Amino acid sequence: MDDLKLTCVIIENSILHSKELTKIINQHPNLSLKNTYRNGIEAKNHKANENADLIFLTVELPFINGFDLIETFKESPQIVLVSSTPTHAFRAFDYAITDYLLKPLSPLRFGKAVKKALHNAQPTTNHKDEAHFFVKSNSRKVKINYMDIKWIEALGDYVKLVTEKSNHIVLSSMKDFEKKLPDSQFVRIHKSYIINLKRIEKFNNTMVEVEGKKITLSRSRRDNFMSAIGTS
């Protein structure tokens, strides 16, 4: 991944923020800035979505906003939405975006967004052997695919894995089991629940719905959840 380089474009109407983003992109070893556009119409006319691996797209654009622009793309590269407010974060979740960044940009937070983009750009064949793990359930070893997990639920000294095909009871604390999971895909939203971010159907400030199950979002874990889904 260190050698991977993503070509990117900026779609930003503010000259100040465009310069700021240009600077931080040029300083990143895995990014190559190809072009900058002042609005969605200009970007659309130049087929920005067909000529880059990654788009840094500001939501609040003149003429056509960021969300409407995305909907015009027949084919879309990875998109990192940029906004001056977290207000659009809930709507952003309805789109297949890579991340959501707030202005002014934090170099550390920007780096995390790029890391996600680089991870997504990796050929899936490279990760086949890393897409599963084994647990001991009912006195036997069971292979669990990360992508099949819906959520993990605390059951005293055990945890319950709810997966696509079946459920498994495993002797483990939530804290220990949480360490086995990739934090890019799983997040603990309550003392008794860890969820698969890719299984979320909808959420608000107090609840997350995963595959039809409504799970309480603890106030103490809300910021961590928002950060995990890219709305921090």
Rank of each mutant, 00 (worst) to 15 (best):
residue 194 I to D: 03
residue 210 V to E: 06
residue 175 K to Y: 11
residue 169 I to F: 08
residue 210 V to Q: 08
residue 176 D to Q: 15
residue 205 N to R: 03
residue 179 K to H: 13
residue 207 M to Y: 03
residue 209 E to P: 01
residue 201 E to D: 14
residue 180 K to I: 10
residue 175 K to P: 02
residue 210 V to A: 10
residue 191 K to I: 07
residue 192 S to T: 05
residue 207 M to C: 15
residue 204 N to W: 13
residue 198 K to F: 02
residue 203 F to W: 04
residue 190 H to E: 04
residue 177 F to I: 11
residue 183 D to K: 15
residue 206 T to E: 11
residue 192 S to Q: 07
residue 192 S to R: 03
residue 206 T to R: 00
residue 171 L to S: 14
residue 183 D to A: 13
residue 195 I to N: 00
residue 173 S to F: 09
residue 205 N to S: 09
residue 202 K to A: 00
residue 206 T to H: 07
residue 187 V to I: 15
residue 179 K to L: 15
residue 208 V to L: 06
residue 183 D to M: 12
residue 210 V to C: 13
residue 207 M to G: 00
residue 185 Q to L: 08
residue 191 K to H: 13
residue 202 K to Q: 08
residue 171 L to G: 01
residue 205 N to F: 02
residue 211 E to V: 03
residue 209 E to V: 14
residue 193 Y to G: 00
residue 197 L to P: 09
residue 204 N to R: 12
residue 211 E to S: 14
residue 183 D to E: 15
residue 186 F to S: 04
residue 171 L to V: 11
residue 170 V to I: 15
residue 177 F to A: 11
residue 196 N to L: 00
residue 194 I to L: 10
residue 199 R to N: 13
residue 188 R to N: 06
residue 202 K to M: 05
residue 179 K to W: 02
residue 200 I to F: 08
residue 209 E to D: 07
residue 171 L to C: 10
residue 169 I to D: 07
residue 194 I to Q: 03
residue 170 V to N: 12
residue 203 F to I: 04
residue 210 V to H: 05
residue 190 H to L: 07
residue 175 K to E: 14
residue 176 D to S: 15
residue 209 E to A: 04
residue 178 E to S: 14
residue 181 L to S: 08
residue 197 L to F: 06
residue 210 V to T: 08
residue 200 I to C: 09
residue 184 S to E: 12
residue 205 N to D: 12
residue 171 L to D: 05
residue 211 E to C: 12
residue 188 R to T: 08
residue 174 M to E: 04
residue 203 F to Q: 02
residue 200 I to K: 03
residue 191 K to L: 08
residue 180 K to R: 15
residue 177 F to K: 11
residue 185 Q to V: 03
residue 194 I to A: 04
residue 171 L to E: 10
residue 183 D to P: 11
residue 174 M to N: 01
residue 197 L to S: 09
residue 209 E to N: 13
residue 174 M to A: 05
residue 193 Y to L: 00
residue 193 Y to T: 00
residue 169 I to T: 14
residue 198 K to E: 12
residue 185 Q to G: 00
residue 208 V to P: 05
residue 208 V to R: 02
residue 190 H to G: 08
residue 182 P to A: 05
residue 182 P to V: 03
residue 177 F to C: 09
residue 171 L to M: 11
residue 192 S to K: 02
residue 193 Y to V: 00
residue 168 H to K: 13
residue 189 I to T: 01
residue 171 L to K: 15
residue 204 N to H: 14
residue 173 S to N: 07
residue 175 K to M: 10
residue 175 K to N: 13
residue 202 K to I: 01
residue 208 V to C: 10
residue 172 S to R: 14
residue 185 Q to M: 06
residue 202 K to T: 12
residue 195 I to C: 02
residue 178 E to H: 09
residue 200 I to T: 02
residue 184 S to D: 06
residue 196 N to W: 01
residue 172 S to K: 14
residue 181 L to W: 04
residue 208 V to Y: 01
residue 183 D to V: 12
residue 196 N to C: 05
residue 199 R to L: 05
residue 204 N to G: 14
residue 169 I to C: 08
residue 194 I to W: 02
residue 185 Q to E: 03
residue 210 V to W: 03
residue 201 E to P: 02
residue 206 T to A: 01
residue 193 Y to H: 05
residue 206 T to Q: 11
residue 182 P to D: 10
residue 198 K to H: 08
residue 182 P to T: 06
residue 178 E to N: 13
residue 169 I to P: 01
residue 198 K to D: 13
residue 172 S to V: 13
residue 187 V to R: 06
residue 176 D to L: 13
